[in-house]
Amino acid sequence: MVTLQSTNIPLSVADGEAALLKVAPARVIDFSAALTIARNSLRVSLRYPANFIIWGVMPILWLLPFVFTGIAFSGGITSAQFGGQTGYANFIPYLALGWVVFSYVDSAIWGVGNTLRWYQFAGVLEPMFLIPAPRLSILLGAAMAELVTTSMSTIILFGLSVLIFNLQFALTAVLPILLLLFLMIVAFTGFAFAFSGLILVFKDPSVLTQFVHVVIYTLTPVNYSVSVLPSWVQPLSLILPSTFAIIGIREAALAAAGIALLWGDVMILLLLVVIFWITGILVFRLAEWHTRKKGKMGAF
């Protein structure tokens, strides 16, 4: 017969309760819980060997068809027509940077947005909902894990693009690029909160995710400039953080624009961070309340 051993953890009822609440619970997001969740998500991801293929090979496979399409149309890697529209005649670095940035958008939509659905597939949705932390912490944890895996992918994509196409970027652009990228990722994390809330309510993530992905992809200047969009659509592109991040990053990397020139993009991204986070938190909380009221928290 195994007996209960003594540990440093209080086992008496009263002491145990006190230990649990030794720190006042977070009200909006518990960053410590989010970090624990992120580490665990990465550990679980590493146990699926196929993920290495996705992280290592897929990004370049997403980019290549557009490069080949460009070559087919222009007969080379430059195009005067393309240059006239975008300001960059060589479309390969243009596309590579677009895809690097859009990978982070993709991870917010597919990765963070679908986290709750994936937890449900794994069977751990309810236990995760039962942890003593605001449920947004779960999504932030997923966002952190996605940031790591997406960065692995984009580093590979960027490295391969440099090697294969002999691309050259200004080294001085690193800091402005990281700043713009960071702000965009933070803004899209707020977007992912709202998106997760919608998935919590509507339950069918595949259609919703596909739809949102296609809309953002179409509106974001990944493969073409905003100017080619119909004039009435262009304002929609300008409410997306990805538009400002991609434009700014291209200016920094390809036209050596310094932070002083990018200040406008930075300010707009900061504003979008605030708007997306406030909206994201409110939408998720409303969705969570609605789902608890309907009694469908663990159901998909």
Binding site: E17, L20, L21, P25, A26, R27, T36, N40, R43, V44, R47, Y48, A122, G123, V124, E126, P127, L130, I131, P132, A133, P134, G298
Partner: peptide, 30 residues
């Protein structure tokens, strides 16, 4: 949140843990 900190719950049976983690890793994580 406070209420959840003071309860241990079983719902959903044996599926409700990470199958790709060991028993020890599951317990430490939670």
């Amino acid at each position: 949140t406070e209420a959840r900190a003071t309860i241990g719950v079983i719902t959903g049976g044996e599926r409700s843990i990470y199958h790709k983690l060991s028993g020890r890793e599951n317990l430490i994580f939670f």
